[in-house]
């Protein structure tokens, strides 16, 4: 049994649903805030995820950060070195998808040139009539960035666990891989 800990950065434009998603995940689907309250500081949510078919758990330290331009600069220093990335956009707002490129650049600057396992999440899938971003386009871009693609509806509580579970699995397999590397080390 091992308990792993990962710093998971939640990023993306303002009002795409980052806080809603993280609260749904954190509260196991019991809490959807109907009123919008802009995140102005960094909120930390800690949630343990069990890895199926093992006794291992990954404790996700989810950093819910503001997406609003004027607040990002001030909060960016609290990102630290993320071990995982959850990048969120609004399926009904094409600009929030376009801006994901800029978010990736910002995040990369914090990762010292290393690849950080990540997911791209298209949120608000319940608003199908207002959809502006097609799944195929988003999936293709996600692949080009090495991200796994998910669509969610925080409001309908659909699929909200999937992105964070897949991040926990990615972190767990990274740990296994890393442990094997260490076992094969030669003496200094």
């Amino acid at each position: 049994m091992v308990k792993l800990r990962a710093r998971c950065l939640l990023a993306g434009d303002a009002a795409v649903g980052k806080s809603s998603l993280s609260h749904i995940f954190y509260s196991d689907g019991s809490l959807f805030q109907k009123n919008y309250s802009m995140t102005t500081g960094v909120e930390l949510l800690v949630k343990s995820v069990s890895i199926p078919e093992t006794n291992d758990t990954v404790e996700l330290y989810i950093l819910d950060t503001p997406g609003k331009d004027t607040l990002v600069d001030g909060c960016e220093k609290m990102w630290g070195e993320p071990s995982l990335l959850c990048l969120v956009f609004d399926l009904t707002n094409e600009q929030s998808f376009v801006n994901c490129g800029g978010w990736m650049e910002r995040v990369r600057a914090h990762c010292q040139g290393l690849h950080v396992p990540g997911v791209l999440v298209g949120n608000k899938s319940d608003l199908s009539a207002r959809r502006e971003v097609q799944a195929s386009v988003a999936r293709e871009w996600a692949q080009s960035q090495g991200l796994e693609y998910h669509e969610t509806s925080a409001k309908e509580m659909e699929n909200c666990d999937a992105p964070l579970l897949s991040l926990a699995l990615a972190f767990h397999s990274l740990y296994q891989e890393h442990r094997e590397n260490i076992q094969n080390l030669s003496p200094g």
Partner: peptide
């Protein structure tokens, strides 16, 4: 360290 295997930001 940076060189902590593929994809990790020094978690181990």
């Amino acid at each position: 360290d940076k060189g902590c295997g593929p994809g990790c930001c020094g978690q181990s």
